[in-house]
């Protein structure tokens, strides 16, 4: 028996928020923010309701976005993350997990994605183990897409624990410690706080 129509799956508000934060991180780690994105973050609500580390990190990102120049942000992204042997911080999981690009972690990730029914779009040059792609995968697992249903929490947790948790904190710490990091120090700080909360939340379910 087949469902007569595609049902729009509703997800809890907390999961909606998770998917949106992952989407934002996916975008920020894919490329420097343009003027529209900076303005949108600068205009976003601050997190002042409950004093918290993530709230403070978020508010600093909001403040930084209000004064950041898009061209400077693009340059900073390039200096930090782009360039062969030149980038300050590598955003690929395989680098952090094996010390080399394109090593076994990437191969394992590709089959895991295939099993989840997720594949890199043909026109995309970004490798699957890039932090941006992994955040985008989390978004897709959490919120679904089109007639794709959200993935069960167990699936989200397994993917997160295997491919993101082992290295993302070290990577974000490296961004924060990098002398040339300015705007991205705030992005990394927020990423660290958010991902730590999601790690603990996923461990509960």
């Amino acid at each position: 028996m087949q469902a007569p129509i595609a049902v729009v799956q509703r997800i809890a508000p907390e999961d909606q928020a998770r998917s949106e934060f992952y989407a934002l991180l996916a975008r920020l780690f894919a490329d420097g923010p343009d003027a529209a994105l900076l303005a949108a973050i600068a205009g976003a609500q601050r997190m002042d309701a409950v004093p918290s580390a993530i709230g403070e990190a978020w508010n600093r990102l909001v403040d930084a976005s209000s004064v950041m120049d898009p061209e400077a942000a693009a340059q900073e992204y390039t200096d930090l993350f782009i360039g062969v042997g030149k980038s300050e911080v590598n955003l690929h999981a395989s680098f952090w997990l094996s010390g080399f690009m394109m090593e076994r972690p990437l191969a394992g990730l590709r089959s895991a994605l295939a099993e989840l029914g997720i594949a890199r779009r043909d026109e995309v040059a970004m490798l699957e183990d890039h932090l941006s792609a992994l955040c985008e995968t989390m978004r897709l697992l959490i919120a679904g897409h089109g007639d794709r249903s959200p993935a069960p929490i167990a699936t989200q947790r397994a993917f997160f624990e295997r491919y993101i948790a082992p290295w993302v904190f070290e990577c974000c710490a490296a961004i924060g410690e990098c002398p040339i990091a300015n705007y991205y120090a705030h992005v990394a700080e927020f990423a660290q706080e958010f991902v730590a909360i999601d790690r603990d939340a996923l461990a509960m379910a």
């Binding site: 809890a12 508000p13 907390e14 928020a17 998770r18 949106e20 934060f21 976003a44 609500q45 601050r46 997190m47 309701a49 409950v50 918290s52 993530i54 709230g55 978020w58 958010f194 909360i197 999601d198 939340a201």
Partner: peptide, 11 residues
């Protein structure tokens, strides 16, 4: 933690 209705929903 602020991720959800309490804090983040507004953002």
């Amino acid at each position: 933690c602020g991720v959800g209705a309490a804090g983040a929903a507004a953002a």
